[in-house]
Design a protein around this nucleic acid. Sequence first.
DNA 1: GTCATTTTATACCAAATCGCATAAAAACAT
DNA 2: ATGTTTTTATGCGATTTGGTATAAAATGAC
Lengths: 204, 204
Amino acid sequence: MTQTNKRGRPRKFDEDETLDRIMQVFWKHGYAATSLDQIAAETGLNRPSLYGAFGSKKSMFLQALDRFSDQMHVHLREAGMSAKGANGRMKAIMSAAIDLYTGRTRLSGAPYGCLAISTLPSEAAQDPEMQAALEKMVHRMDKGFASLIRYENGTNLTEPDIQAKAQQLSLVLHGISIRARSGTDANSLKQLAYSAVDSLLPVT
Amino acid sequence: MTQTNKRGRPRKFDEDETLDRIMQVFWKHGYAATSLDQIAAETGLNRPSLYGAFGSKKSMFLQALDRFSDQMHVHLREAGMSAKGANGRMKAIMSAAIDLYTGRTRLSGAPYGCLAISTLPSEAAQDPEMQAALEKMVHRMDKGFASLIRYENGTNLTEPDIQAKAQQLSLVLHGISIRARSGTDANSLKQLAYSAVDSLLPVT
DNA sequence: GTCATTTTATACCAAATCGCATAAAAACAT
DNA sequence: ATGTTTTTATGCGATTTGGTATAAAATGAC
């Protein structure tokens, strides 16, 4: 056991809660348009404290993104558990994602779409780290969908087919996050998503 | 006929060519991360000239976006003409869009995805004009796909079905533009797109 | 209590930002 | 030529940017 004795002046803020607030600011305004002053105002901290806890602006953003990714995948995984069969589980996941994108969860307070899809593309072309982060997010979703299909599949689909279907579903969800950001309501999005799931993973 | 006599000092630059260059800068860096100095350097003009010709930064961006939208739709329409049947035409359109997204056309010099999908989402939540522009881009694509399906359809699909299919295809293409921006190569994207088209518009 | 350590708060800095004021330059009208 | 009009070029200027230096404050160690 490492000693966890706190030396020096104690922090006035909770790191996770602060990172949640940071996430919200980036989620709304994107990366470039967010200033450290905005973040300071929203978190109640001042810039030196922010820098001490999370490093540079980019480092802060990437940490918020990781946190978003983890929380989103927990959220979707839980939703997937609540139904049966590939078709049903995928619809539940789509529904949960759309709730997230349209501001109907505790994680998302407003219809800001997907943090990654809404903010990373504008940075990806000028910053390899941002591009890598985008690629990682996309691949993580691909892998998650593939493993669900693989698990629920009655050996009907070959592995390449599984991968292809998973990518198709990711495509659809990314497109849906764009539409959520453009103002489309949750019900319309769910109709779209369900019909996409039905055509890709028909009920057996 | 209004007299088109040019009064005053003649311009040293071509407006369309300059707008093309402006478009490239926004395409690569997004809206917020692009500075007027960058644009000035890239176009060879100085800021007052830019302002005189195109107005504010946002006005410049929206004009570049309109130009992109028009040129893209010409590009896709031409591609659609080159094939027969709903399935074939849609595949040709997808292929042309992917060429555009991956920097394989004269319009796009690099694999920067779609100007609209790569840059607008990050601005949409804080600026209603940007959100409206994003919505307009999405709807324009929906309408284009719907009219193609409607035209090629042998009265098999009802109008709501046509709209739904069109939106599905838009979803797919938006997702593909995200992947293009994340670095996926053109061939992989085309495989994805073709298989999506086959499942949504099967050959009769 | 005194020292070491860590966080906070204020203030600063150099660079970059958008927009515009001002004046020179280049054309046409008369 | 002289004046009018439009574009160019230089440069200002107030604001904002990300990051940090400095010092005060708050804790534990001894």
